[in-house]
Computed example of a mutant assay.
Amino acid sequence: MPLAPSETKPETLPSYLPLSELTYIVQTGRIPNALLFHGPRGTGKKQAALFFAQACNCRANSGRPCNTCVSCKKISAGVHPDMIFLGPADNKKIITISQIREIGGIIASRANEAAFRMVCICHADLMNPQAQNALLKMLEEPPRRTFFILAVERTAPLLPTILSRCRRIDFQPLADHEIKTILCTQYGLDPETAHIISGTAGSDLDQALRLSGLNKGNAPDHKSLRAWLIKEICGFLTTPKHQSGFKGLDLSRLLSARPEYIHDAMAVIRTVFRDFCILKYMPDKIVNLDFLSVFKDISKVHSYSRILTWITLFHETEKRLESNSGTRLTLDRFFLSLSLFE
């Protein structure tokens, strides 16, 4: 069923989002039947959808949310009955026709209280063809005062007929130093923590907010996860070869036991291998500066070509995890490959 909106409040949205374009749409009074929010993961598409929904329904009628009226507060708190969020079901990689039909049943009746009802489909590029065709019928004959927002990373999987019915708004990725600035200036994080989190999340602002505890959702305690995982990886890389395979399989087992944490865990592992890669040339630029001395000791016993191979194996593993490969088998393969590599 519909997903809960992000806990990040729209009034705290950073200025890099295309809010001026969304504000202009509201001020003209010409709300499109469908908007396509296109951009990489973590560029604030869901937050912008909340901003737009608030602006469309705000009692102040200024084109921007007042954040004080009943409508704005309900949308911000995620309790407005007419703000519908949809995404892939738990542990699924697609949005199915049954999910779209369920939404169709909901919007067939009048909105409860909104001036404009919103249906936001997160990861709309994961709709299968049957789901897209079902959605197309709704876009062709949308209910009165109901608009759709399709948030996507890619447009290629979508039907041309769907794309032609959407007003496209592009979202640009952020550099990690820009995310660091946002975390420090807008959310009050200390520079050291912001450096680690922004380096771990890369251009993914959503992940950065989750890791910082500002947008928790189902996120682990990043500080504890990171410290434990880096120590485990360092222990694995310094274990004698005849024992490293067993240690790697045990680490794979522990990670696979919490599949909801895999994305964040892999982000931490990525920073470790990246740090090893640049340590020789730019030690002050590594993400995990608090592990600098440990990383230096480990790098002394491994050649640079071996470290580059670690990076290659890691990227292959990421791709497998993003596909339909089983988590446990994929991680087993990764750690065994690391332990067997000469």
Rank of each mutant, 00 (worst) to 15 (best):
T271F: 02
M1A: 09
K9F: 02
H195Y: 11
C56G: 11
M118F: 11
T146A: 08
T185N: 13
G188L: 14
R145E: 02
T8M: 07
Q47P: 09
K247C: 12
R30P: 05
H195E: 08
G42S: 04
G29P: 02
D297Y: 03
V70L: 10
L331M: 02
E318A: 09
A194G: 13
R110N: 06
N324M: 10
I169H: 13
F335L: 02
A111D: 09
E102R: 03
E342H: 06
M127D: 07
G29N: 00
F314I: 01
K93R: 10
A77M: 14
K247S: 14
K300M: 04
F116E: 12
Q130R: 01
H80Y: 02
H80G: 02
P14Q: 05
L126R: 06
G248L: 14
I298C: 14
A151I: 14
R258E: 12
F295V: 00
I179V: 01
N218I: 13
G235H: 08
Q207V: 07
C66Q: 15
A89V: 13
T193W: 05
H315S: 10
C56M: 09
N33K: 08
Y281P: 07
E102V: 00
F37C: 05
L163E: 04
P10C: 13
G78H: 10
G42M: 00
E140Q: 06
L183I: 04
Q243K: 15
D332C: 12
F246T: 13
D332K: 11
E192G: 06
I149M: 12
P129H: 05
K137P: 03
L340S: 05
T317V: 11
R258D: 09
I106T: 05
A108Y: 11
R110H: 07
H80S: 07
Q172R: 12
L251Y: 01
G202K: 05
E192P: 04
L136V: 08
F236L: 06
G188F: 12
A49V: 05
T309M: 05
T12V: 08
F335Q: 04
P18C: 09
